[in-house]
């Protein structure tokens, strides 16, 4: 069965969607990602959608699910590389992807995850002082 590869990069997981995303494949990705977050204890998930020419309501729902589930598993999700036309379409479709972090590209997405992890660590240290 076709699968979208999930790469481990340090504390983060990286997914680059390079194929036509049909529904079953999206559902499989959702399951695989959550499993990987659990197995690796990753603190962040980066999903690169720069090769996707559309995001419809089903794919939007899957992205939202991944973000929600990761969050319960103490990991953050950042979606990067959305095409401008896809962003315009998503808003008119009525799917603002609220609750999902986004960044322009992988570099910025990685920086965002790192800064959020650092903020978490600082919080922990402050907790220790109390």
């Amino acid at each position: 069965m076709e699968k979208i590869p999930i790469l481990k990069m340090g504390k983060f997981l990286l997914v680059t969607i390079q194929v036509d995303l049909y529904d079953r494949l999206a559902l499989t990705l959702e399951e695989d990602l959550i499993e990987m977050v659990f197995k690796t204890g990753s603190k962040g998930v980066l999903i690169d959608i720069s090769a996707l020419s559309i995001v419809d309501s089903f794919m939007g729902k899957i992205i939202g699910n991944i973000a929600g589930m990761s969050s319960i598993m103490d990991a953050e999700t950042v979606v990067v590389g959305m095409q401008p036309a896809v962003a315009i379409t998503l808003i008119e479709l009525g799917l603002p992807l609220s609750g999902v972090h986004t960044a322009l590209n992988i570099e910025k997405g990685m920086a965002l995850l790192q800064s959020r992890m650092k903020a978490d660590l600082d919080d922990d240290e402050n907790d220790g002082d109390d």
Partner: peptide, 26 residues
């Protein structure tokens, strides 16, 4: 998408039409 490109539809309109196609076909 192929047909939209063929008739010279702009990228935003293409994306909107393909997204609508996906919704209705599903």
């Amino acid at each position: 998408k192929e047909v939209a490109v063929k008739i010279g539809m702009g990228i935003v309109n293409q994306t909107k039409l393909i997204t609508a196609t996906s919704e209705i076909a599903r």
